[in-house]
């Protein structure tokens, strides 16, 4: 193999680092997107037997948004293996214990259960907030687009912006805002 071909091979199979902001995103829909990058499914060279998966850094996993009343209704099951070792944890409980766990489990469950899955998960780096070690962040060369736009919350606007915002109607003088 010539030097040129060797470099060509390295370039084709180069691992890319992606970053994904999970703020206000549905973790289960996001898992389907992130999975494609983790496994390298988007690459034209993809084959189940070739090792072409990428690294994905997920930031702000503490800010994920579950649809509907899933915070209260979704249950995570665990069994220690001993009699009476079963436990059921609600999504909000799990999220308070570990803000990365829901997203991690969503991505893990979105992939087929084969021998490659645990190795693929090793390439996933989830952080509950935006504090990512610089050594990881230096590798990043692509950003995965979010599924939904993140609206600015009212309390994040400044008082001036709120005051100068155009109004359709004025409340009457005697209107009581509860």
């Amino acid at each position: 193999m010539s030097a040129l071909k060797r470099v060509q091979q390295w370039a084709t199979f180069a691992r890319i680092w992606h970053i994904y902001d999970a703020t206000w995103q549905n973790p289960f829909k996001s898992a389907e997107v992130v999975k494609k990058f983790l496994m390298g499914l988007y690459k034209p060279i993809y084959h189940p037997l070739n090792d072409c998966g990428d690294h994905v850094i997920i930031i702000n996993s503490g800010e994920i948004a579950l649809p509907g009343d899933e915070w209260k209704k979704r249950v995570y099951f665990h069994h220690t293996g001993y009699p009476g070792g079963a436990s059921w944890t609600l999504a909000w409980e799990l999220h308070t214990k570990d803000p990365t766990m829901i997203l991690k489990k969503a991505i893990y469950n979105s992939m087929d259960g084969n021998l490659q899955r645990r190795h693929t998960m090793q390439r996933l780096h989830i952080f509950p907030d935006a504090n990512v070690p610089k050594s990881l962040l230096d590798n990043v060369s692509n950003q995965i687009r979010q599924l939904r736009p993140v609206p600015t919350r009212l309390d994040r606007y400044t008082a001036e912006e709120v005051a100068s915002y155009p109004k359709l109607i004025d409340y009457p003088k005697d209107y009581i805002i509860r």
Partner: peptide
């Protein structure tokens, strides 16, 4: 990265 312009959907 992370860049707010590249974060949102098209």
């Amino acid at each position: 990265f992370p860049s707010p312009e590249l974060a949102g959907p098209h």
